[in-house]
Design a protein around this nucleic acid. Sequence first.
DNA 1: AAATCGGGGAT
DNA 2: ATCCCAGATTT
Length: 422
Amino acid sequence: MGLQEQKRHFSVNLLEWYMINRRDLPWRRHNNPYFTWVSEIMLQQTRVDTVIPYFNRFIGNFPTVQALAEAPEEEVLKNWEGLGYYSRARNLQAAAKQVMELHGGEMPQDKQSVFALKGVGPYTAGAILSIAFNQPQPAVDGNVMRVLSRYFLIDEDIMKGSTRVLMEELAGELIPEGRARDFNQALMELGALVCTPKAPHCLTCPVMEQCSGRIAGRELTLPVKTKAKPPRPEQRLVALVEGRGAHRGRVLVRQRPETGLLARMWELPHVLAAPAAAGKAAAPLADEPAMALLAGSLWAEGFAARPEGLATHAEHVFSHIVWSLQVYKCTEQDQSSELPLIAAEARAAYDAQAASQAEAAPAAESSASTAARAAQEALTGKGDGLTYQWIGPEDMEKLAFPNVFLKLLRNYFAGAYDEATE
DNA sequence: AAATCGGGGAT
DNA sequence: ATCCCAGATTT
């Protein structure tokens, strides 16, 4: 059997299978290029089942490119809350403004213009052009690389950029005349439903007969993929500061910087407790030094608070970092004469910790120096631009929080930490 | 080429 | 625990 025949067998049988087995998904119900675009951005590194409710709400709130372009950014971010990779949301809105200004609010149909949209890379450009406009462009994602590497027995490491290019050439050749829209989705559908990573359902696969990987008994060892580096552990101390007086019933939160991790998301104030030794678990810090460090950190940011005790632990796993959080319930302090003394002691503990971090772990120098600079700037009145705010339960509806802080705050407002420390 | 950027579901 | 998901962007 020749390669050309193997390719034709694949395309014909896969397409036939898809027309019978395609899932009914919200973004497949209308041929709306904007819907296709939004769905493809949401689906980056995210499962279909996770995306569905987010997609429906997002389209309900921002039904057109114009509506998205004109919405307040915080509202867009709030609609993305919990979905992760938040730069996708900001890039999507920035791109909506691009579409308004450069293309009169209509999705462009040429490859150059689509690819030029923020947040649209090789995969998403191909997906939009093929699914929305039925153009014969390949859309190679993780599913497609897995399916093709198995069917054609391709041993190249799919983590390499050159492999993706190779796969795109192959995927482009496989598209049946005039059927790009259905075929590209069929390829991904097969990867999601049948040709799965761990235990592929070869017996129900429409192209099993000519699958080179399966014939060679390699279906479980393909695709070849280099392992990702394990995430570095970080021990962090979190402050749940209860307001008093004018802030009674409210909690202190802050907004993260415009760039980097969880950009522009809101969070409980926290500080890095210990530099992460590469590959080793971060050790919890004893309560006494932890509370001193936390009080000093808050004071450096301009807030007087007394840590009362440990409220709870939490963990937050990113692709490249693991946060182990020690959450301390704190109380906002009155303006009293003894306050500066308490704060000064806490500040000393904080500075000592920052200095020891810089000395003991060059790898963590950046974090330590950042903390030290923040403390210095707070003293000199410069500040680093972080926005702080006292919020009540009702404010949770407007501000976007990463899931870990969302859960902590909901638990707090539900009274979950009342008993533990009082 | 390697690192950064979330969160969760499946195994 | 480990993998990896309809990846893009920055370094």
